[in-house]
Design a protein around this nucleic acid. Sequence first.
DNA 1: TGCAAAACGATCAAAAACGAACATATAAAC
DNA 2: GTTTATATGTTCGTTTTTGATCGTTTTGCA
Lengths: 251, 251
Amino acid sequence: MYAEERREYILKKLQTDGKVSVLDLSDELQVSEVTIRRDLAVMDDMNLLTRTYGGAIERKSVTEQFSYIERETLNIDSKKHIAKKASTFLRERTSIFLDAGTTVRQLIPYVGELNSATVITFDIAMATDLARYPHITTVLVGGFLEHQTLSLVGIDTYKKIETLQADLSFIGCDAFNDTDAFSTSTMRAAIKAKLIENSDQSVLMCDSSKYRQKSLNTFAKLKDFNCFTTDRHNDRLNKFLSEQSLKNVIQ
Amino acid sequence: MYAEERREYILKKLQTDGKVSVLDLSDELQVSEVTIRRDLAVMDDMNLLTRTYGGAIERKSVTEQFSYIERETLNIDSKKHIAKKASTFLRERTSIFLDAGTTVRQLIPYVGELNSATVITFDIAMATDLARYPHITTVLVGGFLEHQTLSLVGIDTYKKIETLQADLSFIGCDAFNDTDAFSTSTMRAAIKAKLIENSDQSVLMCDSSKYRQKSLNTFAKLKDFNCFTTDRHNDRLNKFLSEQSLKNVIQ
DNA sequence: TGCAAAACGATCAAAAACGAACATATAAAC
DNA sequence: GTTTATATGTTCGTTTTTGATCGTTTTGCA
């Protein structure tokens, strides 16, 4: 067994398991622990992995190094909760619009569990996440890069989406009240409206902190959505939700 | 048993086993170990295999052999060197095509130093990098996501680039010889050709390891480029370069 | 906090593989 | 038949790889 082979094995294992241990590798590859440590040191030097005490872990992906992730951790548990609920709408062999934003992004691990699907997005972070799943066909709609959100906007983005159709769309929003969903940006609102228009079913994913926030542009009525997924950490929202007929609300 | 026959045997064995050892080959072919080593050295030079300590392993194409992260760190010093040389072509308030690939990606810190520029790319990793520089207008051309390269391909990508014009383009390549630049993928070759066609000036960025590699599609003649930036760590390339009129070659 | 176990890096040693120089052999060219 | 070029083998000093040892650092637990 050559060194190259050994290191290839380590990388492969790292890719599937996310981590490796010196002891396990030493046993599996039938070489001393010292040798494994040397391998890991070299590969750490090459930025192929991150050394830990007792082994190594995967190196962070391109986007994870970026500040985008910091904003993402805001209300992360709510977002994960919402994503799990929304994921029940996913079906095999369908085409899916994913709106830009950190809430919808949490859905991607569930999308990755599908055997086959076509995903259309205009969020670079999502596209990078989706690159992990070769069996998912990913279409990234082009446009001008908005650097704060790592997503694409502009008339090109809108016009391209206008030509696409999907079975299902997952939409985020900046704010909502008892009847409407809002977005801060006019262009984004137009895009969201078009996503809903061009898909058979639409799921709104929105955490409770957005309730009764102010925002400029209405892009849809809440009743336009087949489902409205949210959490329940806000008293006034609780009241609103309990007043609703809950048939299309998941908490 | 002639040398040709021996090497053919080695290649065949490599194809079935994925690896060969000097000792085994020496025994099987009834020649000394030195001879086998010489064979392997020659074939390594011809990029037919990859030499290892004690033998050799199959030579897969770089994309299938390494993950994006690995390719990123491969020949990183050469890539940085090339990027620095190529950066002298950058000018304020111009529009710039950036071809996908890890070599061209090294150019981005220099692009970021500009006060104002419009960058057009179809590489997600590059777009993510560019998001650090809000003063740079970035256009990401959409398409199908190719997960190994983190870049976008397809007819949409091509058609969009067809409608764009730039002052300057930076192009990478998978292989080149004394007259031509090659790409492995037909679609990528078409895109590269279009980038060159639609820009006033073109700079080829290519490290020496690509010299005389095999690849399918010619997308340009070396003389089509205003400048050819490379490093100089390969004997045969050195010879080729010194035979050239060096006016448009930067090392 | 302090202690023991585990993991670590540094150093040394041995075996395997290596490259370079030189020698030999074989085949083609004159 | 001699010369020349190419291919192969031998020798030997050097480099690479790996493992063993040992003192030090880190970690988890009492």
